[in-house]
């Protein structure tokens, strides 16, 4: 049982992080915290991809004497792209929060909703 848990350790961590991030996005009313929750959620997926490409005992895929086992570089490359997307999303999200703060004077979701109800 323990051996089984440790052999899939990376997936347990991924799921834990994923649920942490997802919970923060849903439960937090503060917009900045929502963005960070979203970021944790995305990072868990990065870890999922990166750890799946790891081959036990493998090295970086560079031809050299004495090495014959390599890790799979493709998931790592894919995640480079996804990291860029994640950074862009976070930057845009935070920029929007700044604009929301300027327009509403608050970044708490419930207070914004109250202000919006008045306008309808």
């Amino acid at each position: 049982m323990t051996a089984e848990i440790f052999s899939t350790f990376n997936y347990w961590m991924v799921i834990m992080l994923m649920m942490t991030g997802f919970y923060v996005v849903i439960a937090q009313g503060n917009l900045v915290k929502k963005i960070f929750g979203l970021n944790i959620f995305q990072v868990s997926v990065f870890l999922f991809y990166i750890s799946m490409g790891k081959v036990a005992g493998g090295t970086a895929p560079i031809l050299a004497d004495g090495y014959s086992v390599y890790s799979n570089p493709l998931p790592h490359v894919l995640i480079l792209t996804a990291i860029v997307v994640g950074v862009a999303t976070m930057a845009l999200g935070l920029a929007l929060v700044i604009r929301i703060k300027a327009a509403y004077g608050t970044i708490e979701e419930d207070e914004i909703e109250k202000l919006e109800e008045k306008e309808q």
């Binding site: 929502k34 979203l38 999200g93 929301i100 919006e116």
Partner: peptide, 20 residues
């Protein structure tokens, strides 16, 4: 309209969750 900002923010959260 300032509600465009919150609409965009909400879409950003839900859209990113969808893409992820």
């Amino acid at each position: 309209d300032r509600r465009a900002l919150t609409a965009s923010f909400r879409y950003l959260i839900m859209g990113t969750i969808g893409a992820t």
